[in-house]
């Protein structure tokens, strides 16, 4: 027996830290954010795929993408819609800025309460700009829901119980969890499907109100089309819209403070640079043997 599910996918726009090129650091040694493209957090895409599969298996289900960030993070909702999500919400407000994982979780949990009657909250295990893996479990705690982290596949949902295969250290585990629940998805799960051309056409000009730049072509098209196509205006929520407590949001809601940030200064050693010539390689091996580094 299948019943429709209301699924919320947590997704984050992140700088692509995996492809840090030479221009990613400024000559002063700080991070050059502009040089890093903003992308859909990879494991959140794995989560989206699991959500879309559930939607296919349980007719009538809906998938919504919830993201928090500056207005340009509306792109995450579009990317979700292009792949088959039904709706999305952008949490954006200066009061959300500077949030650590706890304040982020508070904001997301508050929005999920506002969305209401959610069966499954699903997101990536962690985001590549922080690698903390904390937001999923913290959202679960704030909502008082059970959590399954490191999920690789949702095997089935029957009688309101999800059976999930998850990665554990050195092995795998299969668990049963009653709904509603929070699931975080590991990168070893199935990759996300590509964008669907028809959906791209449909949602190309979908924008959050704050994203609309009256001078850009997209902005003009959005203004023209959204009158007759309300789905082109994406949901955009502030702290007040989700009845959030400003003291628990952003910097003021964050127990952790950054004391210092240091650029990684490579503890540059006295490197010996060698060529690939036989003489150099043999010389190195002899040196390592003499110093008993290798035996």
């Amino acid at each position: 027996m299948t019943k429709p599910l209301k699924i919320v996918v947590l997704a984050k726009q992140v700088p692509d830290t995996r492809n840090v090129g030479k221009d990613a650091m400024t000559p002063e040694g700080t991070v050059n954010r502009a040089a890093l493209p903003a992308i859909f957090n990879p494991e959140d895409l794995n989560a989206l795929e699991q959500a879309l599969r559930l939607k296919e298996q349980h007719p009538g289900s809906t998938v919504g993408v919830l993201t928090m960030g500056p207005p340009r993070a509306g792109e995450i909702i579009r990317q979700g819609l292009f792949r088959g999500a039904d709706t999305g919400w952008l949490l954006t407000d200066r009061l959300f800025a500077g949030a650590d994982t706890l304040a982020t979780s508070y904001a997301l949990a508050t929005a999920i309460k506002k969305i209401g009657d959610v069966d499954i909250v699903i997101g990536g295990r962690q985001a590549i700009d922080g690698d903390t893996a904390q937001v999923g479990p913290q959202v679960a705690q704030k909502l008082g829901l059970n959590q399954v982290t490191y999920a690789e596949e949702i095997l089935k949902i029957e009688n309101n119980i999800a059976t999930i295969r998850r990665h554990i250290d050195g092995g795998v585990e299969t668990v049963e969890v009653p709904l509603p629940c929070v699931i975080t998805v590991n990168g070893s799960a199935a990759p996300c499907r590509p964008c669907n051309a028809k959906l791209v056409m449909k949602y190309k000009y979908a924008m959050c109100p704050l994203e609309v730049d009256a001078n850009s072509e997209c902005g003009i098209r959005n203004a023209e089309l959204s009158k007759s196509r309300p789905y082109l205006t994406l949901n955009q929520w502030s702290v007040a819209d989700v009845d959030g407590d400003p003291n628990q949001c952003g910097l003021s809601g964050s127990p952790t403070k950054v004391k210092t940030v240091q650029n990684i200064v490579f503890q540059a050693k006295e490197s010996k640079t060698l060529t690939a010539s036989d003489a150099d390689v043999e010389g190195l091996i002899k040196e390592l043997l003499e110093e008993k580094i290798i035996g």
Partner: peptide, 22 residues
Amino acid sequence: TVIGRDLGPRVSSSLTSGLTAD
């Protein structure tokens, strides 16, 4: 670990305390 990263955030959220990963 998988366990510590599942448990730590849940506990820190319950106690509203800060947690730093890795």
